[in-house]
């Protein structure tokens, strides 16, 4: 018996995985990760305001491999969420709803995300020495 009227769809156990629903849930995951990054951004700002020692502590926390994994994930999420957000904005204007269009725009977003994330890290690592 259903306790409430919340919609249950999609029924994940029998749902066929496609590029559209994969990218849709990835939009949410990347959004949550960027939420954490936004909190971290304010901590970083506070560390700058509090002076050199606190800045060194916060920078030190970000210099191990676990933090690097986090920042690679954040940068990927950032580019993905930005590009997929453009897709969402197009949908809000009623454009691009045909099946071949959502599949095609989804593939473009994935391709551009990988391209931008890798070139971002290439530029970053050649510019700064960590």
């Amino acid at each position: 018996m259903a306790k409430n009227n919340q919609p249950l769809s999609p029924h994940l156990s029998i749902y066929k995985w496609q590029i559209t629903n994969t990218l849709s849930i990835l939009h949410r995951f990347s959004g949550v990760l960027l939420f954490l990054a936004a909190i971290d951004f304010s901590i970083w700002l506070a560390s700058i305001a509090m002076g050199e020692n606190s800045y060194a502590v916060i920078s030190g926390l970000s210099s191990n491999w676990l933090a690097l994994v986090f920042w690679v994930a954040v940068s990927f999420s950032f580019f993905y969420h930005s590009l997929n957000g453009l897709r969402h904005l197009a949908w809000d204007f009623g454009k691009g709803f045909e099946t071949h269009q959502v599949n095609y725009s989804g593939l473009i977003v994935v391709f551009l995300t990988l391209l931008l994330t890798s070139s971002f890290w290439f530029f970053l690592l050649t510019k700064y020495s960590f």
């Binding site: 409430n4 919340q6 949410r28 959004g31 960027l34 939420f35 936004a38 951004f41 304010s42």
Partner: peptide, 24 residues
């Protein structure tokens, strides 16, 4: 502005996620 808009947009987004997945 960047920080304020980021956390504003993030709250709006996470709010939807909570409303979608937590029914009680």
């Amino acid at each position: 502005l960047t920080s304020l808009y980021m956390i504003y947009h993030a709250e709006l987004g996470v709010q939807v996620i909570i409303e979608d997945y937590v029914s009680e």
